[in-house]
Computed example of a mutant assay.
Amino acid sequence: MFAITLVLVYSGYSIGNAAFKSGLPVKRWAIAGTLFGPAAYPLFNSHKQLAYRKAMGKQGITIIL
């Protein structure tokens, strides 16, 4: 039980730190990381990409080969 709690708290801390570095709401992502653990990380990545595309607008169009 202690190990699960430790993993959830660490996940909340690491996702909160990543949210701070990405410019996303820290408290929201830290709570999501604490509640859902590592399962919140894919959702965080998709929100990070969406915020980046929204911020770049049409200037951020890139061609990936």
Rank of each mutant, 00 (worst) to 15 (best):
I64T: 12
I31T: 09
H47R: 11
Y13F: 08
G57Y: 07
G12F: 04
G16L: 06
I15R: 03
G37I: 08
K54T: 12
G12Y: 10
S14E: 06
S11L: 03
P25A: 07
I61W: 14
K54A: 11
W29I: 06
I63L: 15
M1D: 10
G60N: 09
A30Y: 01
G37E: 04
Y41D: 05
A19T: 03
H47T: 00
A51H: 12
N45L: 15
M1V: 03
A51C: 03
F36N: 03
K58G: 12
Y10K: 08
I64Q: 11
Y52F: 05
A40R: 03
L35N: 01
A19H: 01
A32L: 07
F2L: 15
A39T: 07
P38Q: 04
L65M: 05
A18L: 11
F44M: 08
V26L: 04
T34Q: 00
Q49P: 00
K48S: 14
L35P: 03
M1T: 07
A3K: 14
K58M: 11
P42V: 06
V9L: 13
F44N: 03
L43W: 12
F20L: 07
T5Q: 10
A55D: 09
W29S: 02
S46R: 15
A19L: 02
R53F: 11
M56W: 00
N17A: 13
G23L: 14
Q59W: 02
T34P: 00
F36M: 10
K48M: 15
L8Q: 10
G33H: 07
Q49K: 14
L8C: 02
G57I: 11
K21A: 15
Y41P: 00
K58V: 10
S22I: 00
G57E: 08
L35I: 15
L24T: 03
T5K: 06
R53E: 15
S14D: 14
I63S: 08
F2H: 14
K27T: 14
S22F: 02
F44D: 06
A40L: 07
G16S: 08
N45V: 10
K48H: 12
S14P: 00
K21S: 12
G16D: 09
L65A: 09
N45S: 09
Y10M: 13
Y52D: 01
Q49F: 05
L65G: 07
K54R: 11
Q49R: 14
F44P: 05
A39L: 13
L50I: 11
S22L: 01
A40D: 05
Y10I: 13
L43F: 15
G33T: 01
G60Q: 06
S46H: 11
V26T: 08
Y41K: 10
Y13D: 04
L35G: 03
W29A: 06
F2M: 07
G23T: 05
R28T: 12
T5R: 06
F36W: 11
A19I: 05
R53G: 02
I61R: 13
A39P: 00
G33I: 04
Y41G: 02
L43C: 05
F36Y: 12
L35K: 10
Y13T: 03
L65K: 13
P38R: 08
K21Y: 08
A30C: 12
N45Y: 08
T62Y: 12
Y13V: 13
F36R: 09
L35D: 01
P25L: 07
F36V: 02
A19C: 01
A55W: 02
F44A: 05
R28A: 13
V9S: 04
Y52V: 03
T5N: 09
